Deep mutational scan, measured.
Amino acid sequence: TTVVVGNKKYTFDNPEAAEKFAKKVAKKLGATVHKTNGTFKVK
């Protein structure tokens, strides 16, 4: 599962961990999490 934050990509074996990370980053940046085909995008 990939999490994309700006131009950085983070890969997780565990989708739950990926989602948690994405939400944490989004909260910090005041952004939102978008899920597309198993990829979480923070923007």
Score class of each variant (00 low, 15 high):
14 N>F: 07
9 K>V: 13
37 N>T: 05
4 V>R: 07
10 Y>L: 04
28 K>C: 09
17 A>S: 10
34 H>T: 14
34 H>P: 01
16 E>Y: 12
41 K>A: 13
29 L>R: 04
6 G>V: 05
25 V>T: 06
37 N>E: 10
13 D>M: 12
23 K>H: 14
11 T>N: 10
28 K>A: 13
14 N>S: 11
41 K>R: 14
12 F>V: 01
7 N>F: 11
5 V>Q: 01
9 K>G: 05
43 K>L: 15
26 A>N: 01
28 K>R: 12
5 V>L: 06
28 K>M: 11
30 G>A: 04
28 K>Q: 10
37 N>R: 05
28 K>L: 12
42 V>P: 03
39 T>K: 06
6 G>Q: 05
26 A>Q: 02
23 K>F: 15
41 K>H: 15
21 F>Q: 01
41 K>T: 15
26 A>F: 02
21 F>T: 01
19 E>M: 10
28 K>P: 03
33 V>Q: 01
23 K>V: 13
14 N>Q: 07
39 T>A: 13
9 K>F: 11
19 E>D: 05
16 E>S: 11
42 V>N: 02
3 V>F: 01
16 E>W: 13
10 Y>G: 00
41 K>N: 14
2 T>H: 13
3 V>T: 02
23 K>A: 09
10 Y>D: 00
27 K>C: 07
40 F>W: 14
22 A>P: 00
29 L>G: 03
3 V>W: 01
3 V>R: 00
27 K>Y: 09
33 V>T: 03
31 A>Y: 08
18 A>Y: 01
27 K>E: 10
31 A>I: 05
9 K>Y: 11
18 A>M: 01
13 D>W: 10
10 Y>N: 01
35 K>R: 10
30 G>M: 05
33 V>N: 01
20 K>Y: 12
25 V>N: 02
32 T>V: 11
3 V>C: 04
4 V>Y: 14
39 T>Y: 14
25 V>I: 13
43 K>G: 14
19 E>P: 01
13 D>N: 10
30 G>N: 08
34 H>K: 07
26 A>E: 01
26 A>H: 01
39 T>N: 15
17 A>Q: 11
37 N>L: 06
11 T>M: 13
38 G>W: 04
16 E>L: 12
6 G>T: 03
30 G>E: 04
41 K>Q: 15
43 K>V: 15
12 F>P: 00
15 P>W: 09
24 K>C: 14
18 A>P: 00
3 V>Q: 01
7 N>S: 13
17 A>F: 08
27 K>S: 08
9 K>Q: 10
42 V>L: 06
4 V>C: 11
9 K>W: 12
27 K>F: 10
34 H>W: 08
5 V>F: 05
35 K>S: 07
38 G>S: 06
35 K>W: 15
28 K>N: 07
36 T>Y: 13
39 T>I: 15
10 Y>V: 04
42 V>A: 01
27 K>H: 09
17 A>G: 06
1 T>E: 04
6 G>P: 01
28 K>G: 05
32 T>Y: 07
10 Y>P: 00
27 K>R: 11
31 A>M: 14
36 T>A: 09
33 V>L: 07
23 K>G: 07
37 N>D: 12
11 T>V: 12
3 V>A: 02
21 F>Y: 06
31 A>K: 03
3 V>P: 00
26 A>L: 02
22 A>G: 02
25 V>F: 04
7 N>L: 11
23 K>M: 14
38 G>D: 07
20 K>S: 11
16 E>N: 11
4 V>D: 05
4 V>G: 03
2 T>N: 10
31 A>W: 15
24 K>M: 14
41 K>G: 06
4 V>W: 15
19 E>W: 15
43 K>E: 15
14 N>A: 07
16 E>V: 12
30 G>S: 06
7 N>D: 07
27 K>P: 01
33 V>F: 05
5 V>M: 04
31 A>S: 06
35 K>Y: 15
5 V>K: 01
27 K>M: 10
6 G>C: 11
26 A>S: 04
5 V>P: 00
28 K>S: 08
38 G>Q: 05
9 K>R: 13
4 V>S: 07
24 K>H: 11
34 H>A: 07
16 E>R: 13
32 T>P: 04
7 N>W: 13
32 T>Q: 09
9 K>N: 08
43 K>F: 15
1 T>Q: 06
11 T>I: 13
9 K>H: 12
23 K>I: 14
33 V>M: 05
22 A>K: 01
35 K>Q: 09
42 V>K: 01
43 K>N: 11
11 T>S: 10
7 N>H: 12
17 A>V: 11
